[in-house]
Nucleic acid binder design. Sequence first.
DNA 1: TACCACTGCTGAATCGAATCAGCCGCATCA
DNA 2: TGATGCGGCTGATTCGATTCAGCAGTGGTA
Lengths: 329, 329
Amino acid sequence: MLADVAAEAGVSTTTASYILNGRADEMRIAPATVAKVRAAVADLGYRPNRSARSLRTRRTATIGLVSDQIAGEQYGSSMLTGASLAARELDHLVVMGESGGDPELERLLIEEMLERDVDGVVYATRTARTVHLPEGLRGVRSVLLNCEDPDERLPSVVPDDEGGGRAAVATLLAAGARDVWVVGEDPVPEATAGPRRMAGIRAELATHGLDVAGLVRCDWSVTEGFEATSRWLAAGGRADGLVCMNDRLAMGVYQALAESGLRVPDDLSVVSFDGSALAGWLRPVLTSVELPFTELGALAVRRLLDADDHGGTESVPMRVRPGGSVRPV
Amino acid sequence: MLADVAAEAGVSTTTASYILNGRADEMRIAPATVAKVRAAVADLGYRPNRSARSLRTRRTATIGLVSDQIAGEQYGSSMLTGASLAARELDHLVVMGESGGDPELERLLIEEMLERDVDGVVYATRTARTVHLPEGLRGVRSVLLNCEDPDERLPSVVPDDEGGGRAAVATLLAAGARDVWVVGEDPVPEATAGPRRMAGIRAELATHGLDVAGLVRCDWSVTEGFEATSRWLAAGGRADGLVCMNDRLAMGVYQALAESGLRVPDDLSVVSFDGSALAGWLRPVLTSVELPFTELGALAVRRLLDADDHGGTESVPMRVRPGGSVRPV
DNA sequence: TACCACTGCTGAATCGAATCAGCCGCATCA
DNA sequence: TGATGCGGCTGATTCGATTCAGCAGTGGTA
């Protein structure tokens, strides 16, 4: 403990404490004294007791991360990776908890984290959407990750889905597509990804004097993508470019196209959103606009620990990850 | 704080503390006193200060979970979900850290966790394998998750890959397959999943007087699965049952079979390992032996917090998740 | 009556740091 | 010469719990 270090160095614990907290200059400690203390620290392999420190300072160098389901999700869990790494860089550790969407469990988790004096909380959701900040976080330093609360001016980190929508269409247009259909729609009212991607898609088409040629409605799953696309094809549906709302859906689309003998990208180009591993597994590799999950997680933590951050939503760009599903020009 | 509660109830903090720590009987506190204190707690909305408690008790009701990469992994991240939920049930919270395989970062993370007096550490790996317990965890209560250290008698939680191998083959045999090939092999020396599955596969075949008809060598990726299987088929390879070492690989196998006009399960049955979401996305749905990730994570935490646990490896059963890739009898 | 046991409670020390309010000695200045 | 300032350090308190040792009061026993 600190007292041992102080004894070994022949100074008071007060002095040792100042030195170890980087207040040596401020407190005008003589360089020789600083050296003695540092030597004692190294000698004894001293490591501060965090509980003792926290008891006084009310800070723990620990942040909370509550989510509904991000660990369970296919690859949104990378948000955790990003958060964990960013926290480490800033000398913090991440306490995580998953509510599975149960508000009561969420309340409990938040309470437990606050009891442990976390320095802040990242509130994350599996899918990009609007949320209401949980009661328990009112007055607590917090950052929203992959979600936004329209009622509060909180720091919030989300993917730039609208920019992603523009990028997706730009890729198709560059490949010569003019008859662009969109597959998928978002049935969840709070979900933001769908509408924003759609807005971007329309905006980019508009720059070429175009609009969406048509919409194949279905939810974002493989089977729905397959079935809806099959029906569309059976009804004589045709296009030279398809924008799928996510990769899983696109997998279903691939299956439907294959069954009806259409070749990607020869007969039509396909782009999608997510940039998940799945995109890389499909044949041909699916060109997909990547959700920057790792970056989102890291950024949320950095903003949480940045005392100068005064809130507001930050949209992280989504980049096209090229595959072979867009016809080369 | 506790002093306020004690004051409100008209007792000493000592008494209040005993009551709140469930030592009322042991200390022979009068029921009336207990009631008064509980009322005061409710009244004031008292929540204990964990740092203060930890300073005395050296326990934090927090456990560490260090891994190389489990959050980043496709669905091994469910281990986190399981760990988080089990911890909550036992009134603990999980501090997580990912090293990304960097030993120095791993050392740092462990050190930081220990500084924070975690009550124990779960050491997890993305893929099932043997490991050496990190130096920093020597003498620390810890459980290995998805890995084992042959040199130490530590509590260790792994999937029962051998049983999984038997189950996979049993499924094929029940469907009438007799000419069973295995696709995939494990190039990583420490990896345990491959050899154990293989042992189970051979053992089950042996009960019917059979052995593996042949092995298609490739690593466990979609493209490798596709290419190796294509080569095998081109060389005249035939079988009535295929065991794929994991789902991604199986996806490549599906692609190769489709290209050469073979139908699953009409021409041959396919089973696989992992039970990932991907298995459900393939057409036909892939019959796969499930890795019980959530359960593994939960069990590791329970064993960590079970003072009566005296080490040893526990293998969690892997169950067949039926799809449509095995020919109905 | 003196001793003891038991019930029901409390005072004070303790955990390991952070930090406020000085204190001592020496140089400087009027 | 005495006041002032500053460099360099420390004593004592504090954070909010846990816990050991012990203390009244009561009733039973020898």
